[in-house]
Amino acid sequence: MLPYPLLTLSLILMWLLLNGFTPGHLVLGILVAVFASWAMASLRPEKPKLAKWYLLPKLFGIVLYDIVKSNIAVARIILKSGRRSHNPGFLTVPLDIENHTAIAVLAVVLTSTPGSAWLEYDSNDRTVLLHVLDLDNEAEWRDTIKNRYEKLLMEIFA
């Protein structure tokens, strides 16, 4: 009946946000969402498995906090007068997660955080190439990615 309950629910929410809440729009939104999730099912994408979904708010909080922190850090780098006040560089990090959804979430998190950008993922030797704006201590960046994000993502997408 409903192959992707989370997708259906968020489509209904999006429909109601766009059109305002009335009972008629609720019915119409449910119809559209159910048909859209059937269409999605016929595409047969890889189905993400959420093992510990209750950890998602924790991930969200951590990411919001880190984005605030790195916004301030990057704004400081940009506004400093000296052109060479930072030390940019490439960074190759081996990853342990295999789940495609988890890797996608990690890529979105790292790229939307100012100061680090995800360049490419090599699925053969499972390393990712990052570019970091301020590579003063490389070990701390590795530690952040491995312990702060990757561990949590591995718990969420088991």
Partner: peptide, 11 residues
């Protein structure tokens, strides 16, 4: 390096 700057605006 420039690729990091617009993410300030988009976050």
């Amino acid at each position: 390096e420039r690729i990091h700057a617009p993410t300030l605006g988009t976050s």
